[in-house]
């Protein structure tokens, strides 16, 4: 017979071990995914691959237009989602009178976050590309991905704003600061890093999206660089999809190298978010 206190200790060890195993399992899983990509793709990664234009439908040459396209697209997304999202969150936490309207808006934001990305793509096609006449372009795709990222930015900003103690706001108000001054000189500066961290996480997700840009401006292979928000563009996620499925004779290591490049860019953004968040 096992004494009860002994049994409790065994159970304690068991749960402890399970939690540790889960943690290390996740770490190993993540590392092996990255490692696998590195093993399969690193051989192909050289200066030419990263910096040259594609030749022969991408079978030769480099993926520079896709890298640049993804960078520009992410920047365009940030340009749309950041100001709108931060301002919406500031309105909701600092200005809105509260009550039913705010709860309704919150509900809408939560639901917006759950809309499948392909639906955003169709919305972008209908509204930005066709209705507003932007055409298939970097601008239309940026707006579409901006909308997709908006709920993430709003939620992250709201959470960051709520971490600023009420006492700071009260002190500033009591000194005669206007609401605008309280927000600009107190609330926002104190939670800047939290907002940036949340926003970067949202952007890193947008960076890897394929469906929303598929119908709003991305090109299969484009042997020239985008010249502005009106241009069509290449992007890594879509280029990856096309290379892997639509182009016969595409060397496998080129596909892996493309995937590795995208992965590295997303991880870099996440890492930046982590660093800022720990500020």
């Amino acid at each position: 017979m096992i004494r009860p206190e002994r049994r409790a200790r065994i159970l304690e060890h068991l749960v402890d071990g399970l939690i540790r195993a889960t943690f290390w399992g996740l770490v190993i899983l993540t590392l092996s995914i990255v490692a696998y990509f590195v093993i399969r793709g690193a051989g192909q990664l050289d200066w030419e691959f990263l910096a040259a234009m594609p030749r022969n439908r991408g079978i030769e040459g480099g993926i520079f237009p896709a890298i640049l396209g993804t960078v520009l697209l992410t920047a365009g997304t940030a340009l749309v989602a950041l100001p709108l999202g931060v301002m919406a969150a500031v309105y909701l936490t600092e200005y809105a009178p509260g009550g039913r309207a705010v709860r309704l808006i919150n509900l809408a934001i939560v639901n917006l976050a759950g809309v499948p990305s392909v639906v955003y793509g169709l919305f972008g096609l209908a509204v930005f590309v066709l209705l507003l006449g932007l055409g298939s372009s970097l601008g239309a795709a940026s707006l579409t991905l901006g909308l997709l990222t908006l709920p993430v930015v709003v939620t992250a900003t709201r959470e960051a704003l709520l971490t600023v103690p009420r006492a700071y706001r009260e002190a500033a108000f009591a000194l005669g600061a206007s609401r605008r001054q309280v927000v600009l000189t107190h609330v926002l500066p104190y939670c800047r890093s939290g907002i940036m961290a949340g926003a970067l996480l949202g952007l890193s997700r947008a960076m890897g999206e394929t469906a929303p840009i598929l119908v709003t401006g991305v090109a299969v292979v484009l042997p020239r660089l985008p010249t502005g928000f009106g241009s069509r563009f290449m992007a890594l996620p879509y280029h990856l999809y096309i290379s892997a499925t639509q182009i016969p004779g595409m060397p496998a290591e080129r596909i892996w190298a493309t995937a590795l490049t995208l992965l590295a860019m997303v991880l870099a953004l996440n890492l930046l978010a982590g660093i800022l968040g720990n500020d």
Partner: peptide, 20 residues
Amino acid sequence: DVVELRQKVGMVFQKPNPFP
């Protein structure tokens, strides 16, 4: 004008609340 009022009527709170 509340801003003007709060300049003429200052307030010190229960817990010290200096800005960081």
